[in-house]
Write a protein that binds this DNA or RNA. Structure first.
Lengths: 345, 345
DNA sequence: GTTGTATAGTTAAGCGTTTAACTAATCTCT
DNA sequence: AGAGATTAGTTAAACGCTTAACTATACAAC
């Protein structure tokens, strides 16, 4: 593997000059520049990153971090889209991505991960995280690693989806279709801020429509499809005349779809279902699921861009990505007959 | 950030001694060792990886590579499970993962990626790749980076699923259920060896049962759900009395499920569907899809273990992971009445 | 009492860059 | 013509670690 030395020798100059040529420092004659470049070409020279990192103190490596707290977040299909977005922006700018899923608890942090931080291997990092307990931000602070958080966190730099608006969005949509007997599949509070925000938005939309959320049947799930299926069954047991089900994420909505199908309830003719996330698989369900899109890859891109800004010593402000409604076939307007029925009761 | 120097100063010895303590080299007195460790503790010292990398020539970073050739393979949900498997094994052994999705063509390779390879940043790499055209192996060879390929490739070290056996498995299962009128959704040949192998296995299973594959209707898809839906429609147009559809991947099988649903054909009562991959979403379809499992996370784990072996100068042989049938609800035995019908025709 | 060996520690070179500080030559003004 | 600025290039230190080569004890063996 050729080194700067080799190039310098071949070009008949010092390593300093070669380095200047390579970093486009001025005050190098055209002639020398050409000789150096030719030598570089001949030897097929590329700088050794470890040497460069040592000398410059920067590695051009960005950590993309999925803290493992309650759950292996890495399993979430959304993650793929996020990483893809990050990857695109970052590699475009010549950065590489170091993937890490440190096991963090509120007391201790993953020693391996801490080692990576300390060792100065990372020029910056992006943490996907909405779990307040995780100590990622503290660690980044301690070791002076620029951090962008993708999620809710009290870090200066963060980007997240406007989950509150998303919650409103899904509920307003259902309301606009005429639904009033709506069952809600939610998630136990205070574990994940994003989901809490959705719930808040959803409740406020109901209030605005003059409906008390407490009057509607709710059931709790744990993100999984299976729990969604169970929750839907529970909801229908509470009120067999439900005309719509709103789920705080897609996987549970898909579970609900399964239950409905098993029970012979036609979706969307008899009952509408709306989810949240817009997973890739949500367009493959029968019927294709109407949902709120988080724009996962945009989230990824945006967080990468933000980190780049931070690295350039700019001070970006929080980015909030607006969710959008992805209308597919699992929701339909309340039919007149049902409408009448719902009036009566 | 404290350095070896600082530790040495505080412990009252030379950096060499500190280094010895830290690398467990013998010939250091218990007393000194203790002093050094105490200094390390006090300063909260961690070695700088760039320095170590430069000096040792090893970085403890493994590249996990998804060559971007025809398609952004990174979109495939299986990828997540694979990466997870790799990640687990590698982080356990103190390695970090550098993620890369170089844009490769048969002529040129991604300059950015080549730079990473040249620069000696990678101790080894795992490439997810079944596309013969990709030049990953050649690159790894050129730059002497130990490589394990996850897929079909002529590299010495590789791990892949036994797709041939998988193809047999799915077809034999259908045959054992009594199906004879089987439509097949395949993929144009020579693009992806894994899929070709499945096809080969499937054909051989048919031959073994005395059926000429050419006598069965086939339709081509392009991996996508949409194409699977179209293919299913095409198959049914060819033979409306089909009792089963076999698809070479899950996404297309799910598309077929959609078409069948739209056409009012009951699955599995009227017609069975089998896929291949066992995607996470395949258990969420209605009905849950019977499929062949690739054991993606095992593939990941196995390839990481293999790379570790290579790094320890062992010479592991190719690992072939056996697929297994994942029976769910989309396949049923041929009903007697259909059986009679199929006999007649 | 010398030789040999095991133990404990140090010195200094080397890994491949970058860059501050320096030299030397050329050019521009007055 | 000489002071000062500009241009072109070099030297050498620095980044933080590892490790071969070396020194200096202490101890055993004959």
């Amino acid at each position: 593997m050729p080194t700067l030395q080799d190039v310098a020798r071949l070009a008949g100059c010092s390593t300093a000059t070669v380095s200047k040529v390579l970093s486009n420092t001025p005050y190098v004659s055209e002639e020398t520049r050409a000789r150096v470049l030719e030598a570089v070409r001949q030897l097929n020279y590329r700088p050794n990153l470890a040497g460069r990192a040592l000398s410059r103190g920067r590695t051009h490596i960005i950590g993309v971090v999925f803290p493992y707290v309650y759950d292996h977040i890495f399993r979430d299909p959304l993650v793929l889209a996020i990483v893809e977005g990050i990857e695109q922006v970052l590699t475009d700018q010549g950065y590489s991505i170091l993937l890490s899923t440190p096991r963090m608890t509120s007391e201790a942090s993953d020693p391996m991960f801490e080692q990576i931080l300390r060792s100065g291997y990372l020029d910056g990092m992006i943490a996907i995280d909405s779990v307040p307990e995780s100590r990622i931000a503290a660690l980044a602070d301690t070791y002076r690693v620029p951090l962008v958080v993708l999620g809710y966190h009290d870090s200066p730099y963060q980007v997240h989806c406007d989950d509150y608006a998303g919650g409103q969005l899904m509920m307003n949509y259902l309301l606009s279709l005429g639904h009033r007997r709506i069952g809600i599949i939610r998630i136990p509070q205070a574990k994940n801020i994003a989901v809490d925000e959705r719930w808040r938005g959803l409740c406020d939309a109901l209030h605005a429509a003059g409906i008390d959320p407490a009057s509607l049947p709710t059931a709790e799930g744990d993100y999984s499809t299976r729990s969604g299926a169970a929750a839907a069954a529970h909801l229908l047991a509470c009120d067999p005349h439900l005309t719509a089900i709103a789920s705080l994420n897609d996987r549970m909505a898909i579970g609900a779809l399964q239950t409905l199908h098993a029970l012979g309830r036609a979706v969307p003719d008899e009952i509408s279902v709306i989810g949240y996330d817009n997973l890739a698989l949500s367009e493959m369900t029968t019927p294709p699921l109407t949902t709120v899109s988080q724009h996962a890859s945009t989230l990824g891109e945006r967080s990468a861009q933000m980190l780049l800004q931070v690295l350039h010593n700019e001070q970006p402000s929080i980015a909030v990505i607006a969710p959008t409604l992805r209308e597919r076939a699992s929701c339909a307007p309340l039919r007149a007959v049902d409408f009448a029925a719902s009036r009566q009761s």
